[in-house]
Design a binder for these strands. Structure first.
Lengths: 192, 192
DNA sequence: TTGCTTCCATACGCCAGAGTATGGAAAACC
DNA sequence: GGTTTTCCATACTCTGGCGTATGGAAGCAA
């Protein structure tokens, strides 16, 4: 056949498929993850896919595992790096802009809650993150139950922000209005 | 053929299809809205559907119109009935339990943001509701910009709550924990 | 009764993606 | 240098939903 227009390597690995799958999810959502379109996007045919994976479920499974692990490492890293709990909370909001791919994937996963393979991932991730927040609020002097409520509230704000972002109803991340809003959120949710 | 096992009327209207479509969306999401499955669910064949509608798009269009109008009436009603802005805000949160179908539909629409027909509806609805909130916060003495930010923040909390509900990570609506959380949210977001 | 209109069933063709089967090229092994 | 293993292309079948065409039953009309 033709001299292989694939840009990168000569041969693909399962990890390549998983990464591309995550990019497709970030762009078009979980329901758009289909073998043949993904293969076309990669400039290859599904013959390759079915050598590396048993089927669509299997691909999604492993892609989600990969994403969750990456996200989990991210969380622990930011937890370890910042000592001051208040700064940790602030950075929680400010980090939305960076780590773009990860957040886009998460946003699309949220849109696909209810999917049997996605749901447990979402549960674990939200749980981990809320515990992270809850711990920070406790360090700031809140009673445990109050801290848990505040964590849930704070995380809801984050989720709502992602939703408004999907609807294109959030001020552009580089505008002054955005900064003013973030400041307002911080003032309202994080004790001085 | 057999003596019609349809329970209700002998002949269906377009409005019937629209209502059933909304119920299907509430149960299974927008992407699950397909003609043949819906027809099966109604104990009928698609022959009927294509008499009333030109296609799937048309059905979704009109079902969304119906829902949006209903939601809009709801909003104005609750706005007219309650004079005290603080009570109006409290009722905004407490109303999540009632109007079950409407909220379930909205939740699923949020999950389908990005869909070309759904997106504009979502935009308008969120805008209306946030203006509603913003006005209430202004009545409570906030400056206009601060009120807008607070409205966005409050609405984000609501959206986040819907998301956590989709993930089954919200305390059961009848439990004491739920009441405690709601109380916490009100304390945090609504000025005394 | 005849005829027209409304509403629906049935039977098609079409298309996209899933999964399978098989063969071939290229690299690795010995 | 031949063999084996790895990786992928091609060519199927199969399933499910879309949209169309056509006919038939029930109700009203004249």
């Amino acid at each position: 056949m033709k001299p292989l227009m694939r840009n990168d390597k000569a041969t693909l690995t399962a990890a390549d498929w998983e990464r591309e799958a995550l990019e497709l999810i970030a762009d078009c959502g979980v329901q758009a993850l289909a073998i043949e379109p993904l293969a076309r996007r990669m400039g290859i045919t599904k013959g390759s896919f079915y050598w590396h994976f048993s089927g669509r479920e299997s691909l999604l499974e492993r892609a989600l595992e990969r994403w969750e692990e990456h996200d989990s490492r991210n969380l622990n890293k930011s937890l370890g790096e910042i000592d001051d709990p208040r700064e940790r909370l602030v950075s929680f909001f400010r980090r939305v802009g960076r780590e773009k791919l990860t957040h886009e994937v998460y946003s699309e996963l949220c849109a696909a809650a209810g999917h049997p393979q996605v749901e447990p991932v979402l549960e674990r991730v939200a749980e981990r993150r809320m515990q992270h927040l809850s711990a920070a609020f406790e360090e700031l002097g809140m009673a445990p139950e109050r801290a848990r409520h505040q964590a849930r509230l704070t995380y809801s704000v984050y989720l709502g922000f992602l939703q408004l972002q999907r609807q294109h109803q959030t001020p552009s991340l580089s505008s002054g209005d955005f900064e003013a809003y973030i400041e307002h959120v911080i003032q309202t949710l994080i004790p001085a």
